[in-house]
Design a protein around this nucleic acid. Structure first.
Length: 274
DNA sequence: ATCACGACCTGGAGGC
DNA sequence: TGCCTCCAGGTCGTGA
């Protein structure tokens, strides 16, 4: 599930690998992933030159000359891959861009939970995909005071708060559980019931967990989440709780439990998370 | 207005 | 061994 660390990894790689490249030919097969009709997508991207790659939460923004921006959300199974020219489609190659330098960039998403939209740079702020997103959890403006404010906005389970893209854009189910384990807070605890010390733990855990995962290139699950060169992220082996229900907690060695919080599967340690 | 929940989609895991 | 059902995930639309 591409969350902030995975999307950031892809953003950095894309910026270095395809910055300045020209998309000589673009093939887009009509597909529910496309929020811009396939024909318009192909027409709008053909001949375009990449000016930069940005990120808002889990959304990638690939900028082109002519003030065009391609919004790409990877959903839970989306990938953007640089593949050898004339590589046969193993399936789900929804958009294929042949670059002028001979390389080929592929967007694929087997489960089709992601999306692509081509937009004008000037109209970005009006897009529903971006309008509700809060400031980046790793942004310089995410101070302790700003963190407290975003937590005071509304009550509810702390896990649900972390998943709220209006408050913490980019955090998903995997890293929410990881963050709460580091902060020693149970996912079902209400925000209003957190002590000041716990809030401080959470504030630091968000930054530590996300930064740590980015350094390792994100998390791969069953080989599904790959970077643009097809390599898995190295964070998968470092997961503290996600997907480990029944296993021993690394910190206190009690068995990890799973429970639904806000309708989402959550894994936590019932002993050292309070 | 806000919150809860189901739909979307498909590969993989688990059960029979 | 093989088939079938169920589940996970993020977002959005609907209903409460």
């Amino acid at each position: 599930m591409p969350e902030l660390p995975e999307v950031e990894t892809i953003r950095r790689q894309l910026g270095a690998a395809i910055g300045g490249s020209v998309w000589r030919r673009v093939t887009a097969r009509p597909c529910s992933l496309f929020r811009t009709p396939a024909a318009a997508l192909a027409a709008g991207l053909t001949g375009a030159r990449v000016t930069g790659v940005d990120r808002r939460g889990k959304v990638l923004l690939i900028g082109f000359d002519g003030d065009r921006v391609l919004l790409a959300h990877l959903g839970m199974s989306g990938q953007i891959l640089l593949v050898p020219p004339a590589e046969p489609d193993p399936g789900h190659h929804h958009l294929v861009a042949d670059l002028a330098d001979g390389r080929t960039l592929v967007f694929r998403d087997p489960r089709r939970f992601g999306y692509l939209r081509l937009a004008a740079r000037g109209g970005l702020e009006g897009l529903t995909e971006l309008a509700g997103l809060g400031p980046d959890p790793l942004g310089a403006d995410r101070t302790w005071e700003a963190f407290l404010r975003s937590f005071a906005e509304r009550d509810g389970a702390v896990k649900s708060a972390l998943l709220d893209q209006r408050r913490f854009p980019g955090i998903g189910n995997v890293y929410a559980d990881e963050i709460l384990h580091v902060a020693r807070i149970r996912p079902g605890r209400s925000v209003s019931g957190l002590t000041q010390i716990e809030r401080k733990e959470l504030y630091h855990a968000i930054r530590d967990v996300l930064h740590g995962a980015i350094e390792l290139g994100g998390t791969s699950f069953d080989g599904v989440l790959l970077d643009i060169f097809g390599r898995p992220g190295l964070h998968g082996g470092r997961l503290r709780v996600y997907g480990r229900q029944g296993e021993a907690c690394d910190r206190c060695h009690h068995a990890l439990k799973s429970a639904a919080v806000g309708g989402r599967m959550s894994v936590y340690c019932p002993h050292c998370q309070k």
